[in-house]
Design a protein around this nucleic acid. Structure first.
Lengths: 159, 159
DNA sequence: TTTATATAGTTCATATAATTTACTTTATTA
DNA sequence: TAATAAAGTAAATTATATGAACTATATAAA
């Protein structure tokens, strides 16, 4: 009896691990596609869109900060910022307290773009919420939170 | 009273839409990082790893099939296959029924690599499952399934 | 049966994403 | 003051991906 249960439990665990893998992979693909569509809709590379969104709640950012937030090398950040500057979305100025540092901030055009992207993203996630059965919505959010902490725990374990 | 409820409902919806956006974005980032680590661990580009995994359950695949499954242009598939061939992971042969078609299949080295990757992925998702409270596991899977169908519904709506 | 069209695969030009190394300028610290 | 660390930039390289043009073959229509 105990043996049967143990075997059964193992099967369930295996099934669940595989299911998890499949679902996470599908969600990831869906997101990738969505980000790619967003970039097309706004006629801007994804990296530049992501960079613009960093300014929510920040007047100024430095190159190092942007690299850190985007999780890319600082040389990559330089290029992204350069391209956003060419498009008139951000501007660079000297930090009065440290001559090594350049302060980057949104231009009015950049601010408008950020608002546009925010609205686009929000309406997309409202549509998504619409598609979830009202009785399930809190459940889905709770589950995602559980998944997030588990993923972070695994990451911490591996590191 | 009705007005108060309506306003309240709207606030909840707004909160939930934002929460969803945040959680999905975090999951996506976590996956990105994981795939990037996997590629480093196996010393192979992600695209090649993904391509190898397509052969689970298929003896032969054609270039067009690979392009379709990876959701990339066929020219991209050509390059991925070429690189896997250089590494001795796959081999190409002529389709006897259609001279336009090349049949691609795993070499023994490719089969070994696929098994390695499978094991790696499975153990990772087992670790993930381990981190989820046993009482929540079915709930998390159900929630992810609900999220997946909702995402697909939104995608269908937009197209 | 010839002609038109469609399909499979390759090649090349181009764009985006990202890292690594090396370098300049400026700050900090020993 | 000399050594070191940090911020930013530049160039070389790799990976990801598309689209257009092209070759060879297959299928459908005239």
């Amino acid at each position: 009896m105990n043996d049967v249960n143990t075997t059964n439990d193992l099967r369930v665990l295996e099934y669940q691990a595989n299911k998890l893998q499949e679902l996470i992979s599908e969600l990831h693909n869906c997101c990738k596609e969505r980000y790619s569509n967003e970039a097309k809709a706004f006629k801007m590379p994804q990296a530049e869109l992501r960079c613009l969104m960093l300014f929510e709640g920040h007047k100024y950012l430095t190159g190092i900060q942007i690299a850190g937030l985007l999780e890319v090398a600082k040389s990559r950040a330089t290029v992204i910022i350069e391209n956003l500057e060419k498009k008139g979305m951000v501007q660079r100025s000297q930090d009065p307290n440290d001559a090594r540092v350049k302060l980057i901030n949104l231009t009015p055009a950049g601010q408008r773009k950020v608002r546009e992207i925010e609205e686009f993203m929000f309406s997309l996630h409202q549509q998504l919420l619409d598609q979830i059965d009202p009785g399930q919505r809190t459940g889905v959010i709770t589950a995602l939170e559980a998944l997030r902490s588990s993923m972070e725990a695994v990451k911490a374990q591996l590191a």
